[in-house]
Write a protein that binds this DNA or RNA. Structure first.
Lengths: 340, 340
DNA sequence: ATGAAAGCGCTAACAA
DNA sequence: TTGTTAGCGCTTTCAT
């Protein structure tokens, strides 16, 4: 018994047929009415030989292998301390533990230029797992629709409405969260509320900006919209903003919020005394923007929901076109107050 | 053709045998002298049907499945920002990418109480990968020796000399690094160098303390040794230390270094003016101890080496009792200088 | 209550 | 130059 012991080895050791071994191992012993003595013999031999089901054999046969794939379009463990994936993965891991599933991180799909692609490396390694959770900011609609067309079970984290394909996804309810922010600012009496967004227009950002425009319009709030890189957020820019009568600012990312903090310090602008600031992103625990008001995207919970959704798909309990929207926590207190 | 097309489907479409398809796909067409026309027919049918090789079938046949297991005794993605595993995993991922291997994170091995155990859940799920890398501060020698006895290929990260078993591991060369620290302090002219360690005595810490004792003795440095919890490091303690003539301090962990920073601020002790401090651990990028002199444990490189070592074991290129010691980077400049 | 056998997709040894 | 066949580990159907 040098390599991995197979069911055949167990069968031989227990003096029994391989089929019976399979039945006992899969907990269908009752269903098939296997004698208790036989079950014991099987379990004993199994323990003795250190048997573990072979993933390949099982998934080849069409069964499940307890592997949940996790595909990211970038490195999971980044070089710099960029924790974009971290919270999602924490949620995924947590739920995987609960459900007794293991996680497969697809590192083999990375190409020369550092990007990752599902089909780029020729073979779709994702199929090794029962299903997969896909995360990433990149738009790769063709890959997703191809995956869907092949009938491979997967869940995307982040909103993805791929035309002509049913892509199950878990998304944060930005719209409601942003409506809440607008409401709160409005009820404080702010009339001119600015929006500061990044120049890099990726899916989620676009969604936030649009939601803000919509709800601000509905609440009759008028304010400037600026799409800037962090280094373009200067003291002068901030002064101009205030001079124009803006009393509150909604900031898309905490990168930008950091720039605002610096600019405010330069100009002696007090926050929230002179300017209320609400951030639409999670703050770093430390730094100048620590404690600022923000809308918490529930990344952890989204990760966990993705696992649940995927397992639902696998069990056929959930239809393949289902998506879930996870509610964001309300705006935290800190840097939002009445205008001066 | 709803499901994924197999080689059989291609063979039928191209009117040839399945074996020929396999040969063409694996690039052995030259070797077997397949006619150019046949190759074209295969490629054409492949493109047309959108063929993707099935990993399960392939690994079933070949024995290897391109999966490297990663077992940790704690969560990989921690709730608080404790990045103990992060750097190791960054190295592992990097090398896995290079080697075209995927990673399996074993979440299913976690039990009710939150601890993880290889055999705790009844069967050894690790076997589902080709081999595994095991990390964690806990001592679970029985598990490791059982794993070794079963002939399962694995590599431990961290020094582990398990009695009666050959455990391949990748460790940091603390001894040499600490000798370097002692040398440097000695050459600056320090005569009394203290050692501050934690009360929690785990493997690596013990090793550091012993190495320091050994090299300090050899260099005829005399200094107090204290094993304290961070909250026991007070201003009074620090003052006493200085009054006794100590001019330099080697600190085991950055938790303790943080406590020293606070105590020094309290007492108006300048670092390194009044006291040189060398830390034997990686610093957090931010905080009062940022920029302090430290010995960098090459976690990233250790992770990468572990992957190489494991793949070497799998290929039989490396014997199963091999271990590797990775050199630490030398003490960084910052808080070490001549005594006042 | 248990065994025998087929077949999932793939590769390699052997046949033609 | 190409085809035939066996078998990797597993589950399931059918037969005993």
């Amino acid at each position: 018994m040098k390599g991995k012991p197979s069911q055949r080895d167990i069968a031989r050791a227990a003096g029994i047929s391989q089929a019976t071994v399979s039945i006992v191992l899969n907990g269908r012993a009752d269903e098939y009415g296997i004698a208790t003595a036989t079950r014991e013999k099987v379990r004993e031999a199994m323990r003795q030989l250190g048997y573990v089901p072979d993933v390949a054999g099982r998934s080849l046969r069409g069964g499940r292998n307890g592997l949940i794939g996790v595909h990211t379009y970038e490195r999971v463990f980044p070089v710099r301390a960029d924790d974009y994936y971290h919270e999602f993965l924490a949620g995924i891991e947590e739920k995987a533990v609960e459900m007794g599933q293991d996680l497969v991180l697809f590192a083999s799909t990375q190409r020369e230029d550092g990007t990752r692609s599902i089909y780029g490396s020729g073979t779709n390694r994702l199929r090794l797992a029962d299903g997969a959770i896909i995360l990433g900011l990149e738009r790769r609609d063709e890959e997703l629709s191809r995956l869907a067309a092949e009938g491979f079970p997967f869940v995307f984290i982040g909103r993805r409405d791929v035309p002509g394909a049913q892509v199950p996804y878990v998304a944060a309810d930005y719209a409601t969260a942003i409506a809440g922010v607008v409401d709160e600012l409005s009820s404080y009496g702010h009339a001119r509320v600015g929006y500061l967004g990044g120049v890099l227009r990726r899916g989620p950002q676009e969604e936030r900006r649009e939601a803000f425009g919509q709800f601000a319009g509905r609440a009759r709030l008028r304010g400037p919209e600026a799409l800037l890189a962090p280094e373009a957020v200067t003291g002068g820019w901030l002064r101009e903003l205030l001079d124009a009568g803006t009393t509150a600012l909604v900031v898309e990312s905490f990168e930008l919020a950091g720039a605002v903090a610096v600019a405010a310090a330069e100009e002696g602008v007090r926050i929230p005394g002179d300017l209320s600031v609400a951030c639409l992103d999670l703050p770093p625990v430390t730094g100048p923007t620590a404690g600022w008001s923000h809308v918490a995207v529930p990344r952890r919970e989204m990760g966990a929901r993705a696992v649940e959704l995927l397992l639902g798909l696998l069990d056929g309990r959930i239809p393949a076109d289902r998506h879930e929207v996870v509610t964001c926590a309300p705006l935290t207190p800190g840097t939002v107050g009445p205008p001066s």
